[in-house]
């Protein structure tokens, strides 16, 4: 079986990022927290590929060390919504009735609020920090997964193969987990990969606002925020962490596209 090109490219980027996340010390040329007053705000060059910040900290090292926390955000900020939303969508889609109506209204209600505003509001109540951000994203983000899953379950549950399985006397859990779920999960998984990219942007946004990762932990959003005061004199301070976000988003998106191709049963 030939792997689709986007999948190879996407996985290549993700493997690179994973290496940075697992072995930042081995890859980064400098200590990300070490000040160097002889090279403050140094432009990108041979000594510092990405330049340095106002304390002379090497930006390449800081960007590499930030990978771990940002990939962690991509994972933890999506796994909660995926599990909660997927399970709710599967249950209400399959059983229907009053619960389906209520959950449907709840989904509509949550979606009328801007996602970012709602997350920021919840984090502001719970207090800044990544753990609280994960909680806030789970509280709001599950609706997107639930809506996707529910819609797909509604399509699949009227298919004849489900009627055939019911006529064979299969149990409800078997019908849901063995027959409905594998056929309904594809759009959800594809959205998951896109959502991971969005989660990193969200983590960076909250970091930028001071609600996410707390300094001095290097995090891409925080790095961009740090650079904003020096943007006219040292644009590299914001540029390179921004490119890291773009690259990560690209990696997830390509992987998602590739997975979509791969999961097409017609292949």
């Amino acid at each position: 079986m030939r792997l689709p090109f986007p999948l190879i490219a996407g996985l290549g980027i993700l493997v690179l990022l994973l290496l940075c996340a697992l072995l930042p010390g081995a890859i980064a040329p400098y200590d990300p927290l070490a000040f160097d007053y002889t090279a403050m705000l140094a432009a990108p060059g041979r000594a510092h590929l990405f330049g340095t910040d106002q304390f002379g900290r090497d930006l390449l090292s800081r960007t590499i060390h930030a990978t771990r926390i940002d990939l962690q955000i991509a994972l933890f900020a999506t796994i909660g919504p995926l599990l909660i939303g997927g399970a709710i969508g599967l249950l209400v889609g399959w059983f229907g009735g009053l619960a389906d109506t209520l959950v449907g209204r709840l989904i509509d209600l949550v979606q009328t609020f801007p996602f970012l505003v709602l997350v920021i509001a919840i984090v502001a109540v719970l207090g800044p920090g990544l753990e609280n951000m994960y909680v806030a994203v789970a509280i709001v983000g599950w609706v997107f997964y639930a809506r996707l899953m529910r819609g797909e379950v509604l399509v699949q549950k009227h298919a004849d193969y489900i009627a055939a399985a019911r006529a064979l006397g299969y149990s409800q859990p078997r019908l849901m987990l063995r027959h409905i779920l594998p056929n309904a999960i594809r759009p959800v998984l594809i959205y998951l990969v896109t959502d991971m990219a969005l989660a990193i942007l969200l983590g960076s946004s909250l970091g930028y606002l001071g609600l996410g990762a707390q300094p001095p932990t290097p995090e891409w959003g925080v790095l961009i925020a740090d650079g904003k005061n020096f943007f006219t004199t040292a644009p590299w301070m914001s540029l390179f962490p921004g490119l890291a976000i773009v690259l990560t988003g690209l990696g997830f998106s390509l992987t998602g596209d590739g997975l979509a191709d791969l999961m097409d049963v017609r292949r």
Binding site: A159, D160, Y161, A163, A164, A167, V265
Partner: peptide, 15 residues
């Protein structure tokens, strides 16, 4: 008592 369905495309689980 078993059933055979009309649509041979929809009556088999594609996965």
């Amino acid at each position: 008592v078993q059933m055979v369905f009309q649509d041979p495309y929809g009556s088999l689980n594609p996965r």
